[in-house]
């Protein structure tokens, strides 16, 4: 059954400031992505996770070095939080060789093999089976590592989600399934796509240990993720970490969001912004906040400069790396 997780003990202010800085970096990075998209520099389809930064940071900061993640189509935050440099990420969005997927992947196929990022995924639910396989590999080799899947509420309706939950629990593999429940599958609200109110029941159906938490409080996310990871690492089987969160923007950049009232977004921005929440909880002096903003802005602007100065791939590069 689900258990409501509360803060068990407070993190040191410096640690929380570090989390705040990371969340702010993700926020400003994604705002820059929106801006560059609107300026016509970034073509294609881009999804930002503004409002969900505490999930990416809280979970990724709880990981050990050897742990791996699989991300979603809303992947910039997970990727940055797992340690990919903003330069490499921005260069990927600009389609440059210097990008983390060498300009082959783009926003929805971000990889960083060295840092244990097994990839973003344009197909909803697509990365889940691979996480089960990675976790099975860790178990078979008795390695104390955990594989973590991020996915949304929409993904819990897809076949690979159910196959993965079943296999993971059956084999007792060290995996953590992080459900980022932002209450919308693209444009479809929960009540139109889900026959149950509480998605934690999805885990109950497989006999999987589950936790349900507030995803707008990074400290809560961090502590819950630590517990879930320990459970998995100790050989007690997989964990379903149900995180309640909010997407403060559209499904994609440019989404007119006709499916929800403007008031809803305004209210969410006022009450559920994880960056603002942590900033006020920390009672950060204005000077310190402004310094943090300046530092982050410099990194983000630097990433755009780095990306623009990058190397364009040649058409013949598309013919490489199909086979060994």
């Amino acid at each position: 059954m689900a258990t409501a997780e509360k803060k068990s003990h407070a993190l040191a202010p410096d640690t929380l400031k570090d989390f705040l800085r990371e969340m702010l970096l993700i926020r400003r990075f994604e705002e820059m992505v929106e801006e560059r998209f609107r300026a016509g520099e970034l073509p294609g389809f881009l999804h930002v996770a503004i409002g969900q930064e505490a999930v990416a940071v809280g979970v990724c900061r709880a990981l050990d070095d050897g742990d791996v993640i699989a991300s979603t189509h809303r992947a910039h935050g997970h990727t940055l939080a797992k340690g990919t440099h903003p330069n490499e990420l921005m260069a990927e969005l600009y389609g440059k060789i210097e990008g983390c997927s060498h300009g082959y992947g783009g926003s929805m196929h971000l990889y960083d093999v060295e840092r244990g990022n097994l990839g973003a995924n344009a197909v909803v639910g697509g990365g889940l089976p691979a996480i089960v396989g990675s976790a099975l590999a860790f178990k078979l080799r008795s390695e104390p590592r955990v594989a973590v899947a991020f996915f949304g509420d929409g993904a819990t309706n897809i076949g690979t989600f159910h196959e993965s939950m079943n296999l993971a629990q059956l084999w007792g593999v060290p995996a953590v399934f992080v459900l980022e429940n932002n209450h919308y599958a693209e444009s479809t609200p929960a009540k139109q796509q889900l026959p149950i109110d509480d998605l934690t029941k999805r885990a109950d159906a497989y006999g999987m240990h589950a936790m349900k938490i507030d995803g707008q409080d990074v400290e809560v996310v961090y502590h819950a993720a630590k517990k879930a990871l320990k459970h998995a690492r100790d050989g007690k089987g997989p964990v379903f970490l149900h995180v309640e969160t909010y997407r403060l923007t559209g499904h994609y950049i440019g989404d007119p969001q006709v499916y929800r009232p403007k008031e809803e977004v305004r209210e969410l921005r006022r009450t559920q912004d994880p960056v603002e929440k942590l900033r006020s909880a920390l009672e950060l002096p204005d000077g310190e906040w402004e310094a943090m903003e300046r530092e982050v802005a410099e990194i983000v602007e630097g990433s755009v400069e780095f990306a623009k100065a990058g190397t364009d791939p040649k058409p013949e590069d598309a013919l490489k790396n199909i086979y060994a």
């Binding site: 996480i131 396989g133 990675s134 099975l136 196959e163 993965s164 296999l167 059956l170």
Partner: peptide, 26 residues
């Protein structure tokens, strides 16, 4: 049984699991 694994009837899950296993050197 670790090297000859009986699976549930779940073909996408089987192949997807194999993807993860490959990533870890199997």
């Amino acid at each position: 049984p670790d090297r000859c694994v009986d699976t549930p009837l779940a073909e996408a899950g089987i192949l997807g699991t194999a993807v993860g296993l490959c990533m870890a050197g199997w």
